[in-house]
Design a protein around this nucleic acid. Structure first.
Lengths: 135, 135
DNA sequence: GCTTGACTCTATAGTTAATATAGAGTTTAA
DNA sequence: TTAAACTCTATATTAACTATAGAGTCAAGC
């Protein structure tokens, strides 16, 4: 199967597949006589694995690590667990940040009703004031 | 005041200030005989405004628009309100996404306890299965 | 055999908002 | 006068793609 079909089957764009190859997330594909990349079912599996990881916001280096672990089935999987724990922490921290941000934005938004001039605009006035200390 | 002092006063790095100038968020600074940028209090105010906006995750183009509006005090401030509403929507959408993601990650994490081999690892097994359809 | 269209190839640039660097010039204090 | 501290411009890096240019390959139809 050529790259276009792999793209259709997996839902990854052609460029993304080539990008993953360059980043060594998938092995360099075999080539046809005309230098076209050729793939098999194993490539589909691996690409779907990567896609699933990406849908969970795992980074490419993290995925590379998971793929490496996948290749040594006898090893302990502590590393996998640690990675997931760290990742979950990051996601939760980001949710907290955004929640705080959201409160600030809503407060700011309440400081102006539509029918005012820029001069009277509470939003712009508040933005000009000294910033609140927070991330 | 030279760029180093402006940096200290505002808490923006020197490179960031130069970056904002290149992106036309602040006017090109006057120059000294030796070609050093020179700033006054107005520059401090404007930079703090920008910093405040950035702390609310407003993009540089959004900030540019706010600064432009700030310069026409007689205009209606509907545009400001619309921008804030859109921005709040985006932040809330992102919070929703991350919340869903967090649930998925936690579920995945529960599928493996530490003391297993990679081969038995529930996390890796689940990642290899067909991905759930969700952003 | 030739052309057309769909596909693929590589290499490069763009996206965001900075951050970091190299190599040069300026200013200030000792 | 010389060294330190500062500033200048221009360029590269970050993440994970996405988009483009310009060239090559392949299958079908005439």
């Amino acid at each position: 199967m050529k790259i276009g079909e792999l793209s259709k089957v997996t839902g990854c764009s052609v460029q993304t597949i080539r990008h993953y190859e360059k980043e060594h997330l998938i092995a360099s594909a075999e080539r046809s006589e005309g230098n076209f990349r050729l793939y098999d079912e194993a490539a589909v599996e691996q690409l779907l694995f990567i896609k699933h990881c990406r849908s969970l916001d795992l980074s490419l280096p993290e995925i590379r690590q998971l793929l490496a672990l996948n290749r040594s089935p006898g090893a302990q999987c502590d590393d996998v667990n640690r990675m997931m724990d760290r990742h979950i922490e990051q996601v939760e921290a980001r949710i907290q940040e955004l929640t705080k941000l959201n409160e600030q934005l809503r407060m700011l938004r309440r400081s102006c009703s539509n029918r005012r001039t820029v001069e009277q605009c509470g939003i712009l006035r508040n933005l000009s004031a000294t910033p609140v200390s927070s991330g």
